[in-house]
Design a protein around this nucleic acid. Structure first.
Lengths: 341, 341
DNA sequence: AGTGGTCGCTAAACTGATTTAGCAGAGCAT
DNA sequence: ATGCTCTGCTAAATCAGTTTAGCGACCACT
């Protein structure tokens, strides 16, 4: 790769100056007393040779690589990973940095390997990302330098970036209250494991808390709460069917994520009910399917791109120690209407 | 990052030997005449100090970084990018390599920047990936070293990895023929732009060709072909409605991708028709929604993980010059049945 | 005439590895 | 005693940059 690249020595020679002079000019060092003419000659020589510094050589001396590691547990499983990475990539580019990406697959051996691999390459910092918002303990090896947790928090109080799931819970509940829904709101997606173990999920608890708090303030109670072992369409489908089997039909459904909502839609369709005329549906995540559903699904968006961006900013520009909460915007779509009758 | 790392000099000192000796021992060089005892001492010292070589320093000398660049047009837009990356990551790890990921967003300036950024970091090779299978011309800057095109081909005959869309077309058509569908198969998702411009898509043409070829061999013609300006659910929905408005109802539908199929499902549901009893549906991509639909959707899977893996293998291990076609496995699911009546 | 300061620039050290060239000592033959 | 080979190891060069320390020329001032 890059076989015949011109070196700084080549530039200096062509400019008739020393490497020192060339280096200083190209780095725009202040306080040097090199003549305007020397500047010209160096710039011209660099231009003519298409000179680009060898960053491996530079970083050997400066101990900076302009490279940051993005270590995540799982890259592919969820389609959100892409957005996280894209945001980070964007912010990194703006700061002339580049991302070294590795995946641990939740496996301790791989994690060890991944971390050594990036540290060996002298990265300037590490973004340690989780694909589901959760609490975790970071491997001690990366504590030797700057670290930012992305979509995760840690007991060590490291800088971290997480979505504001509680705020999203409030938005969702508020949206329904504003439409006039009161005593016939049902919730799909309760899950003890997710709610009680912060190492599994922080989102479930926060969303639930936001919803409850808002409803409580309005003195409204939930009509029903369905527990689901997972947050997949089939569970939403089953939950919705069980709700429809009960005497009082809900006027609105809150689903803990869009996949559950997708399943709920399927059950509603089979039952011959129309969204939103018969039942409103609202949920969380803003998965692409939310916009594809008929009618389109109102939801609160996980701001993954924002988060990835924020993580890089925190890492390189420094910033607040307390977890950085990124708001989850409400996407008002066609699945919402005032209660029937 | 990594402030107090032991250097080779530290190891040598502790072992009471020269840097040369330490280097040779640690690299397992053959033909050196260092004593068994010297080996022991070096290994012990390295172990005790937790020595890890500084790869920036090493690559300055060896011109190898054990790092490969993954340059893609768009990382986030499609959820397939993750799988491509994951496969590449996996294969890279097996070869002790690491991935530097950049995104061009289809913008020439960004692309220029991305390529310079990775070349400056002396990567050993470049994987140039496109998110939609298509033909493209690679920027000349990266031709100085090993390159593999991923999900793309180029006129220059560079090594490349693409899915076998034509084979997928044959699988899809064969699956329907085997079930007994003959003269009532309709196709949703014809698109001149995608079919005729290889720089937009190679998949559309290849899929269509595979389908036609198989049907022709069985002397079966398509009942109808619907053109769609895009391959999104809403277009599948519209196409399906138009098909249902015609006198002869199809017994099976082939959709050019799963999102179209999703839209088709919605139209079928509204029309009170059941899949697969009334109409079978089969498609391409194996998007996650395919498994979530009710009934689950038969489709041919884009083998993105395999492809990412293959690209790394081709880059590092060398291999065939002609495009490497990765098979698209057929996922037989509930949306298929023999024609009614 | 000597001293001090500024200007414009460079030699050489340094970063941490790999690699080439070669040295000291032992053993053996002549 | 000399020359030769083999063994076991090391000094120094090298990669391509950055950085420190300082040199010679010129000018001004006493």
């Amino acid at each position: 790769m890059g076989r015949n690249r011109a070196t700084l020595a080549d530039v200096a020679r062509r400019a008739g100056l020393s490497k020192t002079a060339a280096s200083m000019v190209l780095n725009g060092r202040e306080g040097t007393r090199l003549s305007a003419e020397a500047h010209q000659r160096v710039f011209a020589a660099a231009e003519e040779l298409g000179y680009r510094p060898n960053l491996a050589a530079r970083s050997l001396r400066t101990r900076k690589t302009a490279t940051i590691a993005f270590v995540s547990d799982i890259v592919a499983t969820t389609r959100f990973a892409g957005d996280l990475i894209r945001g980070a990539l964007d912010a990194a580019r703006e700061r002339d940095h580049v991302l070294l990406i590795t995946e641990t697959q939740g496996d301790a051996t791989f994690e060890q390997y991944a971390i050594e691999a990036v540290l060996d390459r002298q990265v300037d910092g590490v973004i340690y990302a989780a694909m589901a918002t959760r609490r975790l303990t970071v491997p001690p090896a990366i504590l030797g330098g700057p670290v930012v947790l992305l979509n995760a928090t840690s007991p060590d109080g490291l800088p971290s970036v997480v979505p504001d799931d509680e705020g999203a819970g409030r938005s969702v509940a508020t949206a329904l209250l504003e439409l006039g829904h009161r005593d016939a709101i049902a919730l799909i997606g309760r899950n003890r494991l997710k709610e009680d173990d912060p190492e599994v999920s922080l989102a479930a608890r926060a969303r639930l808390h936001g919803i409850r708090q808002t409803l409580d303030e309005a003195e409204v109670g939930l009509l029903a709460e369905c527990f689901c072992t997972e947050w997949l369409p089939e569970h939403g489908y089953a939950a919705m069917r069980s709700l429809l089997g009960k005497p009082k039909r809900p006027s609105a459904i809150i689903c803990m994520n869009d996949r559950l909502a997708f399943g709920a839609y399927q059950a509603l369709g089979e039952a011959g009910l129309t969204v939103p005329e018969d039942i409103s549906v609202i949920s969380f995540d803003d998965d692409p399917i939310a916009a594809w559903l008929r009618p389109s699904l109102a939801t609160t968006a996980l701001p993954h791109e924002q988060m990835g961006r924020r993580a890089v900013e925190l890492l390189l520009d420094g910033g607040a120690a307390e977890p950085s909460l990124v708001p989850m915007p409400l996407r008002r779509r066609r699945s919402l209407a005032p209660p029937a009758g």
